[in-house]
């Protein structure tokens, strides 16, 4: 396998059990540099669990996760170093409420990457500019709207210069009128060749921005295709059922 064709992330037969229920039941896939992989499926299908296994927020019961060719499920791997390169955006934003927006953005690069406060602040400000929130640096998270919070959360992940961004239903907790502003930021990222894995219910986004769609149900990937093929010509019976309900 040459370096250029090596996948950024590769999962091999991932299984995650919670008690008796199997949230993931043997998921194997690859995510390559520059891809925007959209994971869709009914609720309870294991798509969030799959995403959370990629940076080991959820420790798989069995199977492997290879990030940049290294099996990060090995116990002697320093998972913290790898997580620094995997930005994550949560459904409920999870900004740190006791810190200003600027502190939220600059603390991780200062403490983890050893950047000076000036460097971190300059980077944070330019990213804030890009998401249209340059005037919000001194605000506290509780003073922001949901859409603004999520844009800040995306910015916080970007401040670490990640190689891949993981999105866990980033628009599901938002009022409908705020979904657009968050999706715009994500589209902007995708158009700048950011590798992204997105769990979402936004089928419009999946079709427009995704380079590949993973359809999951009952802990398995049932269908894997280009968005155009998946949405216009779904193969699997479950995928057809799902699409008939959500489209």
């Amino acid at each position: 396998m040459t370096a250029s064709s090596m996948p950024l992330i590769q999962t091999i037969d991932l299984v995650k059990s919670f008690g008796k229920t199997k949230a993931l039941d043997g998921v194997s896939t690859e995510i390559h540099n520059g891809e925007v992989v959209v994971v869709v499926g009914p609720s309870g299908s294991g798509k969030s669990t799959f995403l959370r296994c990629l940076n080991l927020l959820e420790v798989p019961t069995s199977g492997q996760v290879l990030f940049e060719g290294i099996d990060i499920t090995e116990p002697d791997v320093d998972i913290n170093l790898h997580r620094q390169k995997m930005g994550m955006v949560f459904q409920h934003f999870n900004l740190f409420p006791h810190m200003t927006v600027l502190k939220n953005l600059t603390l991780p690069p200062i403490k983890l990457l050893g950047k000076t406060p000036e460097e971190a602040e300059a980077k944070a400000m330019s990213l804030l500019e890009r998401v249209g929130l340059a005037d919000r640096g001194s605000s506290y998270p509780s003073q922001l709207s949901g859409g603004q919070k999520q844009r800040i959360a995306i910015t916080r992940a970007l401040c670490m210069d990640p190689g891949v961004m993981l999105f866990d239903e980033p628009t599901s907790a938002l009022d409908p009128e705020m979904v657009g502003e968050v999706l715009d930021v994500m589209k902007d990222l995708a158009s700048n060749d950011m590798t992204m894995v997105v769990v979402t219910h936004e089928m419009g986004f999946a079709r427009e921005v995704g380079t590949r769609v993973l359809f999951m149900d009952e802990g398995k990937i049932l269908e894997e295709n280009t968005p155009a093929e998946f949405f216009d010509n779904p193969q699997h019976r479950r995928a057809k059922e799902f699409l008939s309900k959500v489209l």
Binding site: N80, R83, M88, H92, N94, K111
Partner: peptide, 14 residues
């Protein structure tokens, strides 16, 4: 909130 813990860990903090 547990999300605070996950946010910290996901950024790479131990």
């Amino acid at each position: 909130d547990r999300g605070q813990f996950e946010a910290g860990r996901s950024l790479g903090f131990n």
